[in-house]
Design a protein around this nucleic acid. Sequence first.
RNA 1: GCGCCCGUAGCUCAGUGGAUAGAGCAAUAGACUCCGGAUCUAUGAGCGCAGGUUCGACUCCUGCCGGGCGCACCA
Length: 679
Amino acid sequence: MFPSYNWIQVHTYDIITGRCIPFEEEYRMEGNAYHFYELEQVLRDLTGQSLNELYDLTMPGDEINWETPPQLEFGDLSTPLPLRLAKVLRRAPVEIAREISAYLSSQKPAYVKEFTVTAPGYINAWLDMQVLTRSVFDEITVDKEKYGEVKVGKGKKIVIEHTNINPNKAAHIGHLRNACLGDTLARLKRRAGYEVEVQNYIDDTGTAVADVVVAMQELAPEVPENVRFDYFCWDLYAKINQKYEDEPELKDKRFEVLQLIEEGNNPTAELAKNVAEKIVECHLDTMWRLGIYYNLLNWESDIVHLGFWNHAFELLKSKGHLIYEEEGDNAGCWVVRLGHVPGFENLESPDKVLVRSNGTATYTAKDIAYQLWKFGVLGKDFFYDRYCLQPNGTVLWSTSSEGTKMDRFGRASQVINVIDQRQSYLQDVLRFSLIELGFEQEGENSIHFGYEVVALSPKTAQELGVPIDEDDEKSVYAMSGRKGIGVKADDLMERIIEHTTAEVAKRHAEMSPEEHRKLGLDIAIGAVRYYMVRFNISSVLVFDFDEALSMQGNTGPYLQYAYARSANILGRVDREILDDIDLRTVAVPEDLTEEEKKLIRLIAELPAATEKAAETLQSSAFAEHTYKLATAFMNFYETSPVLTAPPARMRFRVALVISFKQAMNNALTTLGIPALPRM
RNA sequence: GCGCCCGUAGCUCAGUGGAUAGAGCAAUAGACUCCGGAUCUAUGAGCGCAGGUUCGACUCCUGCCGGGCGCACCA
């Protein structure tokens, strides 16, 4: 009748002996019946229980909120629930608060020292910082680099598709936002216990590549030796688009090229393949430098050659929901009816054509086939080849039209497509089409991670030579691949590296220029990655060089600096003392300072921050928590001498710095930001 | 025309219906012969407008205003 604590009653097994450890023993081993990050849930359940016992009321747990109050003096966790109950119970909120508070006290939940009540009717929980600190020290000692991980995703496989840059030009900062968000999401999901497979879709048979091929053939440019191929194509692509404007009939050439690419086995198709592969190599270099890696490259040409759509077509027809139109605007087409779906009903033509009246498949049709493959329900698979060994030591696989059969790819329980917000309509069509066509679960588990694009600030636009109209004061300027307007990802990187390397050189005269550059690169990665994920994805990212280059305040280098400072302290602790300090036995003082408490609390909240960010797909929230963690350490650093503190205090603070260093390392890794012992 | 997103301090951004709306940048004034000043402390200024729901609204609803993006038998 009351919510039960499954995590308390579940028995665990000793991994060495295989013996079942009874609950009581586990309790003694861990010190507490549950992890601190579960405290909020425990408080929710206990509060619900109290309502049931005291007032015979039932309230779902997610309607009971325990949150950190705005002021320190109110407590560590608070709930305004009595305010809401006042009307129902026709009683004064403070009275209700006292009764619930008394009930909660009697349950003695771990980590909580006492409950208090404040006007006009809040219940506050005060943490037992001794117990919490012990618990954090224990967990860090045992878990090390795994500290902060949670298990919500255990046994579930997620496919995350990101990057997906047209292989016809250099990556720009819009692609960088995509890749950084996708990679951080993958890292977060892995830390939340999910099995994650990262796929990068290569549209090697589309118009973008065809345009560059047309440019190669029509403009016959010399491919220069000293210019990167993706940079060269960046300009070439802009040139051919300009030429299309001047000579519209040239566009016919594009369709000829597209047809030849689809047919294959001809010089034009070879050229297209060559262009796409060379560009993909450039893109991979760009992303690898930032610590972004993939599991699988999915080539559109393989989807075409293996006839994924034909297969899906038969599958969908057999399900019986695909409709052949005999009359009307779509006569002769195979369509999905979406008119009854909210959001589509007002469209002029809410039905989506999958097969045109001439018998060819639309892009959405191929996308449906591909999405079904990701879930492992298409009934057809790719062949696979090893593509290369990535710098992080993992193998990057590639789909193939012939080669080895493997059953490890796809077959996901959830699919996340990282694609910008402009394509949300198409992603909705994909999702609802799956549902309508009889793949209800697959549709429900298809998530469009739609982020807003990157645009340029007026200052940065001007710097790039974008024509600025003095009359209208636009606040942002859109990038355009066709016009060749944008900041290339590697140009941004080079500029930041130059900046960070100079800063390192200023501080470390004893190092060689190579070492300066090496550290400069790691700091640049921190600056760029943090800048790309710290904002809410539903806002346009207004890119500005000065902000992206900034290394002060709320930036990646600030986080890295906090870590470096902690490493520096530990490097100065007497070796013997350091070896002698055991986090599991070190004495925790009773008179913890505010700075110490704040730091401990933020370290303790890392698992909860991971879980929340992973489940709500909000990398910005995790970035925010990491920033708070760094700030708490900076404040501790300023106010709390470690090396010169009295012996007992010193040993405790060393233990705390060790804990912070590990937690910060783990948080930075989750964000893909290098943790540097010095910088 | 229809739909989606955004509007919070001079600028860039936080803020699950709850207590005095928070950070960074920029500006100004400070920080001990002490673990690295890529740091810390202090100061000023803000929820686009108008209604509504609620004990309580930056948050939910409606209507405006301003900005961005979508709405194919294109990819």
